[in-house]
Structures are given as structure tokens and as C-alpha cells.
Amino acid sequence: MATAADGRFLAGGHALLPSLKQRLDHPSDLIDPGAIAELRGVTKAGGILTIGAMTPHADVANSAVVRASIPALADLAAGIGDPQVRNRATLGGSVAGNPTADYPAALLGLGATIHTDRRQIRADDFFVGTSKTALGRGEIVTAVAFPVPEKAAYAKFSGLASRYAIAGVFVGKSSKGVRVAVTGAGACVFRDLDMENALAADFAPRAIDGLRIPVSGLRSDRHASAEYRAHLIGVMARRAVAACR
């Protein structure tokens, strides 16, 4: 990468290949980190589950280790796209490429740490805006470390041809408290602190009943108004809390 004028890292190719085909991107080089074995696979040590950036979604969904320690993460991976996508698309590509995808909700909802070739970044500092992350130029995600929670669950509502969430909510409960991450509804994945406080006091779907979910900052398009998305956030959050295990 150091010698490439305007290189692109190629993960599963699911975002990059179509944009090359449509001539939306003109990289000087394609760098394929998939060949590096340590970027692929799952390990667990001391309450931390670490997944290599080049691990395809199908491997996360089918990993006995992931299923035993964070079943919500395995379920989330099993619900992305379709089998063909899950066989090729990777955690790293998803995290670096689209802050409104499903995985970012898990990273934020579990308080994960993103490992790059240069440093470690907390999920809270990683997703910074529309199609924007804290990654520097040429910086590459190598792995994501997920603290194993007491319980967690992800609920999403899609209904789109792209299968992206109109609203998805990841709820994680650990000794440090409750985290609620919302994806698909805004320009970038975000935490809902009101819900987190309410659930910290009473970890049950009813805790969310009285909350008003702010509409401002939510996306409004022909699929769904911001009001409908706000409504869905509440519905999905209740479902996630009820499904937590």
C-alpha cells in the first residue's frame, strides 16, 4: 500500500467490485489482504471475542465459539443479505464500508474495539458520519474485539430490496451497563442514551414504553418517514430486549 498511488483494499469485493464496474472508482492498485491468514477467524480469550477482519459473515454465523459466547452476533451475521453474500462479504468490509449496515450496530451495542494496522479505536469513536469512519488514509481494519456481554440481541426491520435495515436495534447488557445502538434509521449508527438509562433501571420491554424517540436526525425517504423510523426504533428495541439471552 505504501507504494500504491491510490490503492484500494479489497475484502470480499462486495462494495468495491460493483463500483469499479460502474466506473465510480478508479484505484491505481487493488490490495487483497484476504491471503493473510491471521486476518481471518475467531478467537476467544479473557471475556473478549476477537474476529479477524477478513472473516466472512457465514463463518461468524456458523462459529461455535461465537454462538456460545455472543449468540446475538451469530444471529446478526446469519441475517445479513443472502447465503452468497454471507459467503464472501467480510466483517472488515462491512465495518469500514457502511456505517448503516447491521454489523456497526453490534460493534456499538457491545462496546467493541476496532483493531487496525496502526492502533485500536473504540466503536464509540469509530463511526463518525455518513459513509465516514475514523480510519485514516490507507489504514486497514485487522480485527474487531467484542467484550462478551451478559446478554444481547439484535432486532431489525428491513423490507428493502437491498436488505439493509430501515431500523435495526442492538441491545447489549453487561456489568458496565446497558448499550442500545440504532442502525439504518439515521445517517450513521448511533446510541440511544435515554433508552440505555431506562433499561439500566428496568431491563424489560415496558421500560421503553413511555419514551419519546426523537425524530430529528432520522432519515426520511420514500421507504419510510422519519416518524415511522422513530416508531420502528421503539418497536425493534422492545423486540431486542425481549429476545435478549
Binding site: 469485493g13 467490485l17 464496474k21 457465514a58 452468497q84 453474500v85 459467503n87 464472501r88
Partner: peptide
């Protein structure tokens, strides 16, 4: 031709994959 439809499916090492999203180098 944009990676959305799945009609170009082939097996790569036994696993279904979109061949429009797989560079030959991989």
C-alpha cells in the same frame, strides 16, 4: 451487473458466491 441479483452464482470451493463480485485474483 451491479452485484444485486445473484444470478451469476457459482460455487467457489463448494460455497455459493456471486461471480460478478469475485475478482479472478481471489
Amino acid at each position: 451487473d451491479t452485484g444485486d441479483c445473484g444470478l451469476c452464482l457459482v460455487l467457489i470451493d463448494g460455497r455459493p458466491a456471486r461471480s460478478c463480485k469475485a475478482p479472478v485474483s481471489q
